[in-house]
Every structure is written in C-alpha cells, then in structure tokens.
Design a protein around this nucleic acid. Structure first.
Lengths: 247, 247
DNA sequence: ATAAATAATGCACGAATCAGCAAAATAAAA
DNA sequence: TTTTATTTTGCTGATTCGTGCATTATTTAT
C-alpha cells in the first residue's frame, strides 16, 4: 500500500469520525504503529490534522487554545456598543438575558429616557440605576442556569405586550435553521419576546454564527437586524446580509 | 476516549448548562473523578472555564454582584439566622425585599428544597443559585430606590397567590400604628404580600422598633412572628410579645 | 465543633511517543 | 542486469503521558 493512499484513508477516517486512534489505524491499515505515527506526523506538518496523545482529531474539531484573554468579553462589549446606536431616547424596548445584554445594559447612558421591559433580573437591576428609565421586569420562574425568567407567566405577560424593538442574544445562528437555542424554556421566552416586538435585533459574537442548537426559535426572516463584533463587510456576514440589516 | 474529545464534551456541557458537576462528568464520561478534575484544571489553565467547588462554570457567566455597603450588617445577619429556623424544607415561602431579606437569602443552605416567591430581583438571583429551590419572581416595575418590583402587576399576581408564610422587612414598627412604611408603592406590595400568606414574619433590626412611618401597612395583629437581633426576653420586646410570637 | 464532601498531592503502572538503527522496498545509475 | 542510493518500514529501549488509587488537606454542611 502506498504512503499517499494510506494518508488519504486516514484523512477520510478523520473527516468521518472527527477523531482517530493510532491503534485503530494500525489495525485498519495493517501497518505498524510507527508507520501510522509517522503518517500522522506528516499530516500534521502539512497542517491537515491536529495530532493529540493517542491519535489525531480534525482541525475543526480541535478548539485552539484561547490565550488568557477574558472570554470574549471584548467582543461582547463591541457588540453592545454597536447596539447602542439603535437605542434611542423615548423608545419602548424589550430586552432578553445573557451576558451580551448585560454589557448593553451597562453602557446605557445614565441620563437615557425611556421604558425597558426585560425578563432578566440582572438587566433590570442594572438599568434600574438610571432614574429616567422605567424598568418593568417580566416575572416568572427564574432559571437556575441562565438566571432568566421563564415559564407560562412570562409567556402570557409578553403576549399582552407590544414594543418597538426587542434585543435578544443568540446561542446559535445559521442560515439553515435561523435562531436556535438549547433550552426549551428559553426558546419559548425568546419566541414570545420576538412576537411582542415590531422589530427584532439579534446580538451575538461571531463564535455563535453558523452554529445550530437543538431547538429552533425563529427562522432568519423573523430577524430585522443582526449585530456582531465583525464588520458588516466581513465575508462571514454576507450570507446574513441578504435577508437582514447587519451592523 | 481521547483526552481532547473528553474536554470538548466538557466544554459543550458547560456551554449547554452553564455549569457542570465533577461527579456528573465522571459518570457521563466513565472516568475517575481525578481525571475529570485534571481536565477541568487544564481547561481552566487555558482560560476556557472557571473552576468552582464541586465543578466548573462557563467563563462568560460570572455574576458581577455589587455588594453595597450594608448598614448594621451584623445585626441583620443575626436576624437572618434566627429566621432560618422557621425556614423548613418543602415550604412555600414568600419573601419581600430589603437588605435583611438579602441576608436571609444568602444563608439559606445550598441544598434547601422548596419554593420561594419574591418581589426582589436581588433575592431571586441569590436564591436561584440553589438548585433545589424553585424561584418565582413576581415581576413588575422595578423601583429605583429599593430595587423591588411594584405596581398593579405585582398586586394582581400576589392576589392569586397563596403560600404558607411570608417574610417581610420593616421600616417602622410600633404598637400604636403597627407595621408602617414611607413609600406608597412599597406599602401596597407589603399589604399584598401579607394577604397572600397564612402567616407573616416581620424581620427588622431593633432601631426600627417603636418607630412609625407615614403610611400604615397593617396593624400589629396581622403579624404572627417578629424577629429582631434582640433576645426575646429583652425589655423592649415585651410589649410586642403580647400579641405575637417573638424570637 | 464535628462530620461529610470535595480537592490536591504523590506514586505506580500501562499505554503512547520518540529517536535511532537495521531490514526491506523502491528508485536511479552503471 | 547489477549496483548503488534513497525511501520506507519495523523494531528496541528510554522517556513521556494519562489514568487511577491512596493519602492528606481544604472546604462545606450539620
């Protein structure tokens, strides 16, 4: 068996399973462990795979080490600042939960006037420090992980609400599935949030783009504006820019 | 299973649930606790997660609780500890707002089971960290000074509620006027809180005793239990002990 | 304060890796 | 073809890595 042939098989296996064990390859290809190891080494040299102890993984599967920089905080702040440009005095605004929304809440000017509805106690507390903003917290069962109000109470209150614009965060956004999330309760709430608003602004860091979670909140067309830390001219944004405004 | 694979699963779990327990991961991944711990350690070293006692949480998810300087903190803690003795597993409890209530929330055991209703976002967030307690936040307009939900929404939701016991703080308590307060909105909420509960526990530090505020919440007879930092045998408590239980 | 749960540390064992070397296979030259 | 050079493969021993266990500390709950 040719070396090249072997290495192609290895690449195929990795594409298939995202990972591969050195011992398995040895058996599969009927060559010694050393040969496999050497193959893996070459494939890594040419940057096609990532070698790990015991085998190798595909490049996409391998999450590169993120340097000690604080996790995506700066990106989120960047997103928040962009969102602030749509945040006008006198608006009736609905805000979801999550860390991005909290960043947005933090940078809202102290003298801003308006009304903010939110399902997040954290956002509510932050904004309540601004004396010219009425803060209405939509109450319900507080989820233990996301610290957001969920449940039928929230849904029914939101169904009686109508605001200009809703800001919500995203855990998954893709052209195929639209806005997606992994927690059933949260999905229900997000649906209700979007329904209650004329326009929806989705805010997320680019890391969440082209990712689909288990549950669908709404298709792409339900979103009017998308904000990420990337420039609107960035290549990754183009496929979204077709159906919505991006900034 | 490759180490890389395992660590990816851990990251996924954390992204999904925002927090994971070491023991759960051990079972899920079929490896020893030591291995999980080492994985968590490495993931923390590379700055991808934050390790906490018992497991780990997502780095993007740490609550920036502002801890404002609390007046008479020690006395309030003392009151809170006494109140804890009435706080039994399985109870349906209603909690008001204020710093004393927050102290109580803080010392509720992590493994307490039960349901807590509250009008205070701060209390709700504190208690939501206990996974065995259902926390229902009664939503409404968040007051700018006390950070408590107020307004008609709160009143109407409370009118539909019935719980075993309500814990509320006091800004004024006297034999003549009973429980009094100075903020109209807060008074309405406190009335509704007491109406929704079979029994009312009033918690305050002694300096609020024998003081009357502008507005009356309820007369003394509406209160079942009074808790202060003073001993039940203290001279100042005697006149209250005639109509209610004191501790 | 005491008991229980969780974490850190050191050690041992097996598995995986690496480097160097020799045998085998392949390619190139005489 | 034979010879020589080059590449590829397999093997050996030393070393590193990953894991689990036992012990000791630390934290948390009662």
């Amino acid at each position: 068996m040719l070396q090249e042939e072997r290495q192609n098989i290895i690449i195929n296996q990795i594409n298939l399973h995202h990972k591969v064990l050195t011992t398995d390859l040895s058996k599969l290809l009927n060559v010694s462990l050393d040969t496999v190891r050497r193959d893996l080494h070459e494939l890594e040299e040419s940057g096609r795979i990532v070698k790990v102890h015991g085998g190798a993984v595909s490049k996409s599967f391998h999450i590169p080490f993120q340097q000690p920089k604080v996790y995506a905080r700066e990106e989120k702040k960047e997103v928040a600042h962009k969102a602030l440009s749509i945040f006008k005095d006198g608006m009736n605004v609905l805000m979801g939960g999550g860390t991005i929304m909290l960043e947005l809440a933090r940078i809202i000017p102290k003298n801003h006037k308006g009304t903010v509805f939110t399902v997040s106690p954290l956002v509510a507390l932050e904004i309540a420090q601004r004396s010219n903003i009425r803060v209405i917290l939509i109450g319900g069962e507080v989820s233990h992980d996301a610290y957001v109000c969920t449940g039928p109470t929230v849904i029914s209150q939101l169904s009686e609400l109508h605001v200009d614009i809703a800001f919500i965060g995203a855990n998954g956004l893709s052209v195929k599935d639209g806005l997606t999330d992994h927690d059933w309760d949260v999905v229900q709430v997000k649906k209700a949030l979007m329904k209650a608003a004329d326009r929806t602004v989705v805010m997320c860091i680019s890391e969440k783009m082209d990712i689909s979670q288990k549950l669908v909140v709404n298709p792409l067309r339900a979103i009017e504006i998308l904000i990420t830390e990337l420039s609107p001219t960035d290549k990754r944004m183009q496929k979204y820019a077709k159906t919505m405004k991006v900034l």
